[in-house]
Amino acid sequence: MASSLRQALLIIIAAAVLAVATNSFSPNRIPWVGSWPSISGSDSIIVPPSYEEGDPPFISLDDAAAKYQSRGVVFIDARLPADFAVGHIKGAVNLPFDYLDQYYESVLSEYGPSDEFVIYCSGEECELSLHLGRYMMTKGFSKVFVFFGGWREWEKARLPVSAES
């Protein structure tokens, strides 16, 4: 029994070392301590009536939180800069759909078609995220997701937020 335990401990240490090694270099690496919604049952996907065939896929709060763990997934806030300044998902970039022409080039020029995006706006009543998602897909971005629960759901779940712009 003692030798079993010793072997088991060795195996777990080896696994931890390999996990550290891969998670330091993998393109899919995630933070060791992540942020997850503090409310449960956020698994449902909210989809607006205006959803059409071919629109970017909609994701739930849980999915958004999972994608948030992945480095390399870009969160885009489609609301007005004034709303963005009050509070937004930490690390998100602001691309207000109402001022698309003004912002589009400067925000998206550094990304390519293989990059992954999660777009959100304030919540269920706001369709800016859907419109921006549709527009980005016409521009050749294929990995575009709409998190329709938006800012309100994110904030309610006490996930990381930021107020500076």
């Binding site: 899919n28 690496r29 995630i30 997850w36 849980d62 999915d63 939180a65 999972a66 763990q69």
Partner: peptide, 9 residues
Amino acid sequence: PAQFARIVY
């Protein structure tokens, strides 16, 4: 790992 972490969550 991110998808698996979501399942663990």
